[in-house]
């Protein structure tokens, strides 16, 4: 029993790592630009397939392939931001219009991927597939360790960037009070685009790790995105740190649920918690209370 719970903890952590990376980016874009970027899921899949294209179809070295994928994915995301989201935001403050545009992009990108690479699943060769550590009866794959490390570092770096750099502080200032920030000369398009780029860059390792564990399919982003949305709510809209911790919590929670119940009930648990938060504690754990009050 102890073995099983520890093993499930390891599994839960490595799944939570993916959710964390996706949620951190999603939360950053939401808090800075106030955009529910649902097409994040499609960009997630896109970055995975681009890595596959460069690493396996073009035969480039792995690191180069991942970098290229990151650059191209960020480019796509920034173009989406500047060409679609920004004009819509300027025209109307209605966030639903942007949600709809984002859903449209999700459909278009995801199915374009299906047309190019099919839906049968593509496999990314995992150079670390064989490396596994054994602690007692608990197995920890090197991939797990890499996943968790990348997620923690990526999230920490994002938060450090927001707190320690000039641009990061500008982004936070814009997120907390857009009107004031504009008065002091912060360019909304710039901070929005940077948020989009960082959020997308965080997706790339998540997509590659997903490709290592299972296979790349065009719909692969939807599951992590659903968890990211739940994590953002639990963590509190507006808080990047909250989203990351929320993702970690939900990932571990669903692993804990699967200790006692058939594994598929874990999704229901996570979204029930999201529901409770959104209705009764809309500020979440770390959210900006004023903004959630305003939404009422």
């Amino acid at each position: 029993m102890v073995d099983l719970s520890l093993q499930l903890l390891v599994v839960g952590l490595s799944q939570a790592a993916i959710y964390m990376l996706v949620a951190t980016g999603f939360a950053l874009i939401l808090s800075v630009s106030r955009i529910f970027h649902f097409a994040h899921a499609a960009v997630f899949a896109l970055s995975g397939f681009l890595a596959f294209l460069f690493a396996q179809q073009a035969g480039l070295p792995f690191v180069l392939a991942v970098l290229l994928s990151a650059v191209l994915s960020c480019l796509v995301a920034v173009v989406i931001y500047l060409q679609i989201y920004t004009p819509l935001q300027q025209r109307s403050g209605n966030s639903f219009i942007i949600v709809l545009a984002s859903i449209g992009l999700q459909f278009a990108i995801e199915n374009s991927l299906a047309l190019i690479w099919g839906t049968g699943g593509r496999y990314l060769d995992n150079p670390m597939a064989a490396a596994t550590f054994k602690a007692g009866n608990v197995f920890i794959a090197l991939t797990d360790i890499v996943a968790i490390t990348v997620a923690v570092l990526g999230t920490a770096a994002t938060i450090a960037f927001l707190n320690m750099t000039r641009l990061g502080r500008a982004m936070r200032a814009y997120s907390e009070n857009p009107v004031m920030a504009r008065v002091v000369g912060i360019e909304p398009k710039l901070v929005g685009a940077v948020a989009m780029a960082i959020g997308t860059a965080l997706l790339v390792p998540a997509a590659v790790i997903t490709g290592w564990y299972s296979s790349l399919v065009p719909t692969m982003g939807m599951g992590p995105l659903l968890y990211a949305v739940a994590a953002v709510v639990v963590g509190g809209i507006g808080s990047v740190k909250g989203a990351a911790l929320g993702a970690l919590m939900l990932g571990l929670l669903s692993a804990a649920i699967s200790f006692h119940f058939p594994a598929f009930w874990s999704d229901a648990g996570a979204f029930l918690i999201m529901m409770v938060f959104v209705i009764w504690f809309p500020a979440g754990l770390f959210g900006i209370r004023a903004r959630s009050q305003a939404a009422r």
């Binding site: 073995d3 099983l4 490595s14 599951g223 699967s258």
Partner: peptide
């Protein structure tokens, strides 16, 4: 153990099977 169609990560079920 069972999993839903569309599942990509089977490790929770497999951990329980291993037990």
């Amino acid at each position: 153990e069972s999993y839903l169609p569309g599942t990509n990560d089977f490790r929770r079920q497999l951990a329980r099977i291993r037990a």
